[in-house]
Amino acid sequence: MTTLTFRQVETLDPSTQPLPRQGHASVFHKGCLYVFGGRVQGSGRIYVNDLWKYDTAQNRWEELIAADPSHMPRKRHNHSCVVEMNAIYVFGGQTVSDEYLGDLWRFDLDTRQWSELATSQPRHSHSALKHERSMVIFGGRTGLKPAVYSNEILVYDFDSNAWDSLYAGDDQNPTTVAPHPRSYTSIVQCGQYLVVFGGYWWNGKEHYFDDTFSFCLNSHEWVKLSPLRDERVPHRRNRHSVLSLPATDVGSMSGMIIFGGNYYGNRRATDKFFGDAWLFGSLMGESLTSGRWSKVTLLGDIPCPRGHHTWVNDDQDTGRTWMFGGEANRQRFNDLYEVRVEVPAV
């Protein structure tokens, strides 16, 4: 039985911590959780560009003030970030004036200096991860009026400071197997595959997905993993969090775990937030096409249902992860959870 055991963290100084927020981005690096930007609790839309560090050893939050506050990313939400070497990279997002951003910024954790790098096509509510010496971007919304969504896979090369596209979409070929353009989903990496579940798009009505796809980084081809037949899968949703589950030993599972998210049924008072968790996985050495979804058991200080939160792996402690913030029914959170992941070998 796969389990997530939650422990809500009470910090030593609760007066010094990030404001409640959603649509922020988080990374974990050398024993510390970093949180950048987002939409915070308040009257109207309030976006921020603050950067916070939670030190797991000291159990303290600290706001990292830029060495030059006049040169840093604008306030935003629905952006992404990754960590490489000793720097945090922040890409894209949306401003309070509904401007879509395609800028890329690097924050040096040693000098606390922000530097602006090569730009790409503006987008928000995309997802990102680090692969080798690159930052990989999937999907997102690229246009406001009319609403334009993407299923493109972009790659930023840290060494050359240049963008490229691994998959630009093929809407003219009806036989192409690829996820519908979408936003508010997340990607994880399983070996040479990127795995995507769920998400959202809008064309006058809201549409949510419950499908799972993998993209091969070698062949640049998509494969639909689920649902393929009458099988049990998570309810369609967006704004969920996702955690990579790399196989380490014979009999262990490779795949991902999702938590939370939300769904709206295009009818009044049908907005639903989820507090469940699901695992999609296959045994080490088996193809992802053999993977199946299964419900995960939740234990401990279980968070209330929510979406638009972040969930990242701890790089110092195998099996320990960190979940922060999010939103449900216009109430934003700044609660922090240590989450222990246990997936028994088969």
Rank of each mutant, 00 (worst) to 15 (best):
E206V: 07
E152H: 08
N203Y: 00
P69R: 11
S160Y: 08
F36S: 00
P14V: 02
M135V: 00
L299P: 10
L4Y: 02
Y200T: 14
S183I: 12
E221G: 08
S15K: 13
R330E: 15
A67K: 14
N218S: 14
Q316L: 10
D230Y: 03
T3R: 09
G275L: 01
V177I: 11
C81H: 08
W114F: 07
M85H: 11
G326T: 03
M253T: 15
S226D: 13
F197T: 07
G93K: 04
C32M: 08
V82S: 03
F209K: 08
F274A: 04
V177P: 05
T270A: 08
D317R: 11
L51D: 08
K130E: 15
Q17C: 03
A168Y: 05
R239Q: 13
H131Y: 15
T16E: 15
F280H: 08
L243Q: 01
N203T: 11
I137V: 10
R306C: 09
D50R: 00
D68W: 04
G307V: 00
Y34D: 02
D50Y: 02
F197V: 08
P246A: 03
G38D: 01
W293P: 05
T212R: 01
S226H: 09
S80I: 15
M135G: 01
V148I: 14
L225K: 07
